[in-house]
């Protein structure tokens, strides 16, 4: 048999085969895409027009400009739910068992899934960016910084994908994961600077918000897009070095949840 390839080459090939399979689904079930794309669009419009007049982010920045980075981060974090839901569905339908009975690389199903879900996130970022441009958001920094901003968003969402992969393999059904992720992600994104400046928070909450990676990711992206204006940055180290602190979280999450998810995949019992 074909056993001469190295384990690494095998992992890459198998992951690609799995990713391709997931991408075919985007093509075959476009309804899913509509949901993925409409909800960030809705968020941009809702926040821009409903809260836009009431919230002043300070520093002479227009709220809509302030908002878009927050929506970006919230959406890519929610996008991670997709990874979990996809795996939970595959478990339910017995497709994970099919994969597990094949002599393929153990990590390939998860790597393939997390990579193919980047495609969803790229698409939703494009939709959000276009909507943002329509409501008055502009990139005011350099092109290179903007690229770095988008890259940071994708990295951040990729890390959360692995958290959700683990959850997806643990829970018994797709419905559970959708509800569970809502309960976790809602507070995570609301106790942050994604939608409002955090200096108005009560002290305890403010500290949480300052060290919340969603805040720092938002802050980093805002800075890279040049959307912060002259607003003062909170004194916490995390907020002063938002990109570095966010990347630290990315590394930490990946270091914990990649092995955890792979272990869960190997023992996954139907």
């Amino acid at each position: 048999m074909t056993t001469t390839v190295t384990p690494l080459a095998r992992t890459v090939t198998d992951s690609w085969v799995v990713a391709k399979r997931n991408l075919i689904k985007i093509k075959r079930v476009p309804e899913v895409l509509i949901f993925v794309l409409v909800s960030p669009l809705m968020f941009v419009l809702l926040f821009a027009y409903v809260f836009g007049g009431a919230i002043d982010p300070g520093g002479g920045v227009n709220y809509r400009e302030f908002l878009v980075a927050g929506i970006f981060v919230q959406t890519v974090v929610f996008g991670a739910t997709f990874t979990g839901a996809g795996l939970a569905e595959d478990m339910q339908k017995g497709i994970i068992d099919r994969f597990r009975s094949l002599p393929m690389a153990r990590s390939a199903v998860l790597i393939g899934r997390t990579f193919s879900d980047i495609a969803y996130n790229v698409l939703s970022i494009v939709v959000m960016a276009l909507t943002g441009l329509l409501v008055g958001w502009r990139i005011r920094g350099s092109a290179l910084d903007a690229v770095a901003g988008f890259a940071l968003l994708l990295l951040f969402s990729y890390a959360f994908s692995w958290v959700m992969a683990w959850v997806g393999l643990l829970v018994p059904s797709v419905e559970v994961i959708n509800n569970a992720s809502f309960i976790v992600i809602m507070p995570l994104t609301f106790i942050s600077n994604a939608f409002v400046p955090i200096d108005s928070f009560p002290t305890g909450l403010r500290v949480v918000a300052e060290w919340n990676p969603v805040s720092t990711a938002t802050q980093a992206v805002r800075e890279l897009f040049g959307n912060t204006g002259g607003a003062p940055v909170p004194d916490a180290w995390s907020m002063q070095n938002p990109a570095a602190y966010t990347l630290l979280w990315v590394v930490l999450i990946l270091a914990i949840f990649i092995p955890l998810s792979i272990r869960q995949y190997r023992r996954a019992a139907g």
Binding site: M1, T3, T13, V17, K20, R21, L102
Partner: peptide
């Protein structure tokens, strides 16, 4: 897909 995952070219 199954063939590829068995390691077939």
């Amino acid at each position: 897909m199954v063939g590829r995952l068995y390691g077939f070219p």
